[in-house]
């Protein structure tokens, strides 16, 4: 009774606790298994996968599959490896994240500190746009990109990702700024500070945490996008997710499972790194995007 602790008042017996640990560890293994399989099989010669056991550690460790996935594997008709597509993804993701985050910060600032009649409806409209099935915009978007001369270009993809990413970034900043005392903004206005001055001097300096959350969310989403890449990128701007899929689904030649696994890890590496370095913010972004609309 007296040992009732702060974070949980529930007491459990020894058998229950054992069961709980077994359950938790079982699921940890379940989540780790596919990644473990990817890693060990990306370091094996192909023969050890087709003729051997997928769960076994490599007998001949090799980084050949990684080199092949990076620079020589056949993607579509060209044997370029994933490298050019990795670069495409970076060229797409950096501007798209920067622009959508900046717009989101300004929008959130306006929608909380410079409100006007109808601002709620506008925000509602932007919020709903985060959740639409993108199939509904594919046909007109393909046409508009064509008209603008942006089909098959990285610029076109950046535009698409900014357009469909700005809803989420606005949501983040709006909810964050809503908690910021409006009196401070009022006081600054009285002192004659204008719209941008207040934004630069008062709002931006306190926006660090939410900016990190927003950047991570946009980065993960845009890097992992497949649908827009597959629909609008063509060959020249193809992002890595689409290239990886082409590599894995290609029906010509021998299926090089080890190269596929190495390629999959390459495609996952940037977002995984972000998750490892800033996991806390990643989780916060997920929650903000769901629990509070």
């Amino acid at each position: 009774m007296s040992v009732a602790t702060q974070d949980s008042a529930v007491r459990t017996g020894r058998i229950t606790r054992t069961f709980i640990y077994v359950f938790l560890i079982f699921f940890a293994l379940f989540y780790l298994l596919p990644f473990f399989v990817m890693v060990i099989n990306s370091l094996k010669p192909l023969g050890e996968i087709t003729g051997g056991n997928m769960m076994a550690l490599p007998q001949d460790w090799t980084i050949q599959p990684w080199l092949s996935a990076w620079s020589t594997a056949q993607i579509g008709v060209e044997a370029t490896g994933l490298k050019p597509y990795f670069i495409n993804s970076i060229l797409m993701v950096v501007p798209a994240v920067a622009i959508s985050t900046m717009l989101g910060a300004l929008n959130g600032y306006i929608l909380t500190k410079w409100t006007f009649p109808g601002h709620k409806i506008l925000f509602g409209l932007m919020l709903f746009s985060c959740f639409i099935p993108f199939q509904i915009v594919l046909i007109p978007m393909a046409r508009v990109l064509g008209e603008l001369g942006l089909s098959g270009s990285t610029t076109g993809l950046i535009l698409v990702h900014v357009v469909y990413g700005v809803g989420f970034s606005t949501l983040y900043f709006r909810n964050y700024y809503a908690a910021f005392p409006t009196e401070l903004v009022r006081a600054a206005m009285m002192d004659g500070a204008g719209f941008f001055r207040i934004f630069w001097r008062i709002m931006l300096p306190v926006s660090g945490p939410i900016a990190v959350v927003c950047i991570i969310w946009q980065f993960t989403n845009i890097w992992n996008d497949f649908l827009f890449g597959a629909s609008f990128a063509g060959l020249n701007a193809m992002p890595i997710t689409v290239a990886l899929n082409n590599l894995v689904q290609s029906s010509t030649g021998v299926k090089e499972y080890n190269v596929h696994f190495a390629g999959a890890i390459l495609a996952a590496l940037p977002t995984l790194l972000v998750y490892i370095v800033a996991g806390r913010y990643f989780v916060r972004g997920l929650m903000a995007g769901s629990v509070k609309g």
Partner: peptide, 12 residues
């Protein structure tokens, strides 16, 4: 460990 799959692309 439970959460990392959420950071991956569905293609991966």
């Amino acid at each position: 460990i439970y959460l990392y799959p959420m950071a991956l692309s569905f293609i991966v």
